[in-house]
Amino acid sequence: MQDFVRGLWKENPVFVQVLGMCPTLAVTTSLINGISMGLATTFVLVASGLVISSVRKLLPDQVRIASFMIIISSFVTVVKLLFEAHIPEISSQLGPYLPLIVTNCIILGRQEAFASKQPVGRSLLDALGMGIGFALALVVLGGVRELLYQGTIGGFQVFGTWYKSMVIMVMPAGAFISLSLLVALFQRISGRK
């Protein structure tokens, strides 16, 4: 159980480990983008974690990273094709960042640090925890940026029509500002400072 909870809070990949910054900053312009990216990454993380931990004893040490990459990139390609086929609008919003999940260091990091050394059950829990922790961070960031940009969350009007669009929030600068404020808030809540 501890394997699962760790990724959600204490070792949250975004707020604590500050990993996977590229998709975190680039695609979180809206809540729906954050959810899609988070779920896609969670899927790849869980699927490759399962495969790698079940074949971990068969993989020779020297080519383990290469093997990880083959497995991870296969799953990423699967996700990309399915997204393009079934949700083309979101897929075009995410643009190159969908195939770029393959370079997300959380994924390779968890395989190397956990899945390749632990039994299947624990690896599954770890991957789920990390994936959901990542997804939650992206959802929060996407929600905050969308709300501040145009006063909506997930497309629903939260602020009235008086709200003027704050363009900076959908630009890269807004991503950095809101991420850093959220990290500061997170540290404050978890009592690290």
Partner: peptide
């Protein structure tokens, strides 16, 4: 600078 980026029209 923040306002220029946030509200370019205003």
């Amino acid at each position: 600078a923040f306002l220029v980026a946030a509200y370019p029209v205003l």
